[in-house]
Design a protein around this nucleic acid. Structure first.
Lengths: 325, 325
DNA sequence: GCATGTATGTCAACCGGTTGACATACATCT
DNA sequence: AGATGTATGTCAACCGGTTGACATACATGC
């Protein structure tokens, strides 16, 4: 690959001048610019971003750590993040943590070594201390990591309220909740808190199952549903904390001869675009995924520019009625 | 962030020595290593990968260009590629082309400027010439770009054969094929060729619709199905060139009161893991997505190491019977 | 006639590592 | 005693850009 010196030679100017043209600094005649750009084109020259990043101490790379891109929710989120980063001249380094602590730590280390300008954490299986030592712009999804790491989430409590209320109002009397492990300190647990508040307040029978709602091991969901129907065959309403789980619940109902929504009702959470693909389409709580991804990038950029940012970003949720309620 | 000089100072050795320890070059006593590693730990030091990459002329980054990660097939593929790249000490720079020529070109340019060690092309909307000018290790999915760019695909013709034969054998007499645009020079068109060969050979009525099978605009699929059922309400078999399209076909059938598989049969292609989520689960042609992603990374690594590689990699496909046939 | 703005050039330091060349010193082996 | 292996050090060049300092020269305005 040609270097700036090759371009300088070709154009008959100095390397400094080429750099000036490249960065539009100082006085530059149209003539000179044409000459330099011409030489670049002839040599098919691209400035070495590694060298630029090194001398500027800025890589224009954002790191993204999520459980796994193959999970529909995170795939969509990652897609929006890449789109928005690209529009702002940033590149995206993608990391799947697979919800494995050592992998997540490795990835954080690697991103720091790569001198990314910031990290978006969609996975956070570690202790808060680990995140405080990053010393880089960070944005977290769905978890408050510390007082100076901004976080983005949907209005989880409200979403849980809407979902549970709908099930109860539609006549469900034996409710099951399927959500994340309580020991993971994520904000989506608020959905469960809302569920509990409603069922207890209305005196409704309920049970709750826990799993990795952001995991990628979909077979676990199938087993979970099996267990649920075995232990509580007369459950008539399920609030699943992700659309993927809701989809598996729907499938389990079909396979066990339960009619949805007549015998049992199901509501999910997330609003992944694949929700419309199912029959019946699942009732769900919509999170504004695109806006959330876009904001994550913006919050990194603001921090990169040294601006102070608001720490808490709660996005409104919306109930979307489908055919499962 | 501390530099190698800070570590050297802290450990009371020279920067060269620290670099030696870091890269395990020359004679090093355990004592010295302990001293240097101790200093690194104290300072929370991470070598600057930008500087290393620059001086080694090797970034350990692989670029991946796909239509969009939010498309389930490419999300899964990207997931496996990241997993395997990570295991080999490589990082992944993710790019969504959105099947837009200028975006794809921009991304190629950007990856070249970032001095990635290789590019995996899952999107290729440009003319072959554009790819020949990359002058970097490249691997393509589902398209032969030139004589020296290795490519990976499934046995498309065989897949098309299996799919079409199944529909015919199960009694379908009015077949529709939904696949990619013929002007895109992709190998998946072989699926259509197999379809044509079978239906013509057996003298079966057929029609064909074209769309961006790798696109992300799922609403287009809905419109397409609407058109199909309006123009040919008596179609009794659909071969969709992706599972996502098959899923939309299934949905359209449900909504229009068609019974699947009694009134109409559907078969997809890809074998995305979400296929099991639908009811009935869709019959499909399985591609070994994980193995294909893994090979893409391996082919880049082989080229990076200067080894010659086999150019054509056709993976076997498998028919998976679901409930839609 | 001098200040100011425009247009280009050279030189060297710097970003943070890597690497080859060379020096030194001690231990061991023959 | 000399060769060889082990262990560390210094120095400088290099990767490919960026940037500040400084020099020069011509045009224009007052």
């Amino acid at each position: 690959m040609p270097t700036i010196k090759d371009v300088a030679l070709q154009a008959g100017v100095s390397a400094t001048t080429v750099s000036r043209v490249l960065n539009n600094r100082g006085y530059l005649s149209e003539e000179l610019k044409a000459k330099v750009y011409g030489a670049m084109k002839e040599l098919n020259y691209r400035p070495n971003e590694l060298a630029r990043s090194l001398s500027r101490s800025k890589s224009n790379i954002i790191g993204l750590i999520i459980p796994h891109v193959s999970h529909p929710f995170f795939g969509e989120l990652a897609g929006h993040i890449e789109d928005h980063a690209y529009r702002n001249g940033y590149k995206l380094l993608l990391c799947n943590s697979q919800l494995d602590k050592s992998k997540e730590l490795d990835h954080i280390d690697m991103l720091r070594a790569s001198r990314v300008d910031g990290i978006i954490m969609g996975s956070h299986t570690l202790e808060v201390e680990a995140y405080n030592q990053i010393h880089l712009p960070v944005v977290a999804f769905d978890r408050k990591l510390s007082d100076d790491i901004p976080y983005i989430c949907s209005d989880n409590y409200k979403g849980g309220l809407l979902a549970t209320t709908l099930l109860v109002d539609k006549g469900c009397r034996k409710l099951a909740h399927i959500g994340g492990h309580p020991h993971l300190n994520v904000l989506s647990l608020e959905r469960y808190r809302a569920f509990q508040d409603i069922v207890e307040q209305r005196g409704i029978w309920h049970t709750s199952l826990h799993t990795d709602i952001n995991g990628f091991n979909f077979h676990e969901y199938e087993r979970l549903l099996e267990v649920l129907f075995q232990e509580h065959p007369d459950v008539d309403g399920i609030f699943a904390s992700s659309d993927v789980i809701a989809a598996y619940a729907l499938k389990a109902c079909h396979e066990s001869g339960r009619r949805v929504p007549e015998d049992i009702k199901i509501i999910g959470y997330d609003g992944i675009s694949l929700r419309g693909l199912l029959t019946p389409s699942i009732t769900t709580i919509l999170q504004p995924i695109e806006a959330m991804g876009k904001l994550a990038v913006d919050l990194i950029l603001e921090q990169v520019e040294g601006n102070s940012v608001v720490m808490e970003h709660v996005f409104p949720v919306e109930l979307e009625l489908g055919g499962t309620t």
